[in-house]
Amino acid sequence: MVQGRLASLTLLLVLTGVLWFSAEAFKKTGVLRIRRIPGLDAIDELVGRVTEMGRPMAFVLGGTALEAQGFASMRILDYVASQSAKYDARLFVVAPLPEMEPMCQEIMRAAYLREGKVEEYNPSDVLYMPGDGSKAGVLGLYQREKVAGAMLFGNYYYESMLFAEAANLAGASQIGGTANYHQLPFFVASCDYTLISEEIFAAGTYLSKEPTEVGGLTAGEVGKALAVVLMIIGSLLATFGNDSISTLLTK
């Protein structure tokens, strides 16, 4: 065992266990208490808006590497694609990474298939825009296609301000979400709704209410509760010169 990683391993095993057991519990009871997340409620509203206006919507994924936020964002895309297919709203998807593009294509195709409209699916609506090219590309897309809605989710960096404010100036309503704390102020300033940090990970549960999603959300909440308890006890003990919690965490 590598020195200092016992606490991490224990937490990982605890979270995996909680995920499993709470998923099983939800299968039996079907009871889920989850607070309202206005940004996710607004997705249907936004799809309705673009449908009424007869203008398209853009779903722009952020990312310099495919990681957890990317997967969570694709979970939201899955729902948005279904809603768009259902209400015949045109949806452009911008993938910033080469490996994301085929994934987005599959998600879109499956959504149209579920709604029985696979022949209406246009693969050209999924755009791969890499690196710095994506900045000009997305701004051009907003202007050329006159988008009425923009959804910006994932691992965003400075482009958050660019994409959100440009959408605002193009008259589009926006929903943004990222776990990158440094970009949250920009989304809050420019978007109509913002999903803050773990809210994008909760989106899957909120939108699908599927058992393993519920398990994942519960595990995250248990982890947070543990962190809060450890912080309070650790701070109190440290105040009185006892560093047993920090020693425990570095074992």
Binding site: A42, G171, F187, V188, A189, C191, D192, Y193, T194
Partner: peptide, 9 residues
Amino acid sequence: GKQGAKKNV
């Protein structure tokens, strides 16, 4: 205006 309807701030 539109800004009056913004939900974030």
